[in-house]
Simulated assay, not measured.
Amino acid sequence: MSVPLLDVNAQNLPLEAELKQVFENVLRSGRFILGEEVEAFEKECAAALGAKHAISISSGTDALIVALMALDIGPGDEVLCPSFTFFATAGSVFRTGATPVFCDVEPEFFGIDLASAKSKLTPKTKAIIPVHLYGQAVDMDAMTSFAKEHGLKVVEDVAQSFGATYRGRACGTIGDIGSYSFFPSKNLGGFGDGGLVTTECSELHEKMLRLRNHGMHPRYHHSMVGGNFRMDALQCALLQVKLRHIGEYSAGRTRNANYYTHRLSPIAGDSFILPAAHEHARHVWNQYTIRVPGRRDELKTHLTAKGIGCEIYYPVPMHRQECFEKLPEHSLSNCPVSDLLAAEVISIPVYAELVDAQLDEVAAALESFLS
């Protein structure tokens, strides 16, 4: 039996009638940019996350850019971010004119290593971006303490972790700004690109509202230069339908992750390392990522031959990317754990709609590789 890494239709098609009705409503309204659907979705997102303010944005990448712009990050500034992450984290910093400074990560939970971050502080450091990777929260107590000590702004990259929590608070509501993605593969996956920013600060909220729409307020008056970072009304309306199911989606991913952990624990060890989860945080399992020292590529070949979807997130850390090779030396140095993880990690199917037979197939393929 083939098992895809992700099957978006398994989640979307059961909602087909409702999604089509929403599409028809937006079509007939003739209002496709901003408007009631956008405002309603933002309000429901804020309620779901326990955030004071939520603003829909054109993509997860743009959400990071808007957040950095709102914090006045730009040329001459440095921003600490993990090397082991998706490219958008670092690329967004670079696009503001600031310099991304790559820090190493923790080998067990994949969050930014604050000892590495501390070693890379300079007078130019203005902000830090903790990435809640694969669906799990960074240690935000340590993060906020570190940021406060060094006068840094905190932009939480929550692209993979909508609904994840840290000590009862939603990821993205603890730092200065949270940035989310609704790319179709995410836990709350849309029908194209889309994103969100959250903040508890009313001043930042007003600023990001203006930045989203070319810095305009009132109409045709621009006190700042923003961009076209609006999310389509149709995307908001469609996502609003799915948002009401986010609890069951997260529960399904957690159930599947627990199945893998229970079944595979007897064969796990130094050569096959299962993902860990913080006791004080709720992991939402955007990915179930294992580490296979020395044999990861063999395992990928093995799984692919058996029809099991798998992917390497991420094979090249940021400090090894060609486009960043001319950054200052301190931006690129001393990230050995990021290099190690890039050579060891592989993710297997964990999406909520997997059935028992598919879970058995994936687990059996892993067991046969190690037998």
Rank of each mutant, 00 (worst) to 15 (best):
H302R: 07
V292D: 03
E298D: 12
H302Y: 11
L264A: 02
R230M: 11
H278R: 15
T198Y: 00
V292W: 01
R212A: 10
S333L: 09
T254Y: 01
R230H: 11
F229W: 14
T304R: 12
L243Y: 02
P315C: 10
A233D: 05
T301N: 02
N256A: 05
K242G: 11
G227N: 10
C236M: 11
G227I: 05
F229A: 14
R210W: 02
V292R: 02
H245I: 06
N286P: 02
M318R: 08
V284E: 03
P218F: 01
Q287R: 07
A257N: 03
L211M: 13
H283Y: 13
H302M: 03
E279Y: 04
M231L: 15
E329Q: 14
E279K: 08
V197R: 00
Y313R: 06
L239G: 10
L274K: 02
A237W: 03
R255F: 08
T301E: 06
P218E: 00
L243K: 06
R296E: 05
N213L: 12
E325I: 10
G226Y: 00
H283L: 10
S265R: 05
R291C: 14
Y259C: 00
G247Y: 00
F324L: 10
R320N: 12
A233F: 05
R291Q: 13
G227S: 14
A233R: 02
T198C: 04
M318K: 07
P328A: 03
N228D: 15
G309R: 02
I290L: 14
L303E: 00
G226V: 02
G247L: 05
S202P: 07
A305V: 03
N228L: 07
R291T: 11
F272M: 07
P293Y: 01
V197H: 02
N213I: 05
E322Y: 05
E206D: 12
H217A: 13
S271N: 15
H302V: 09
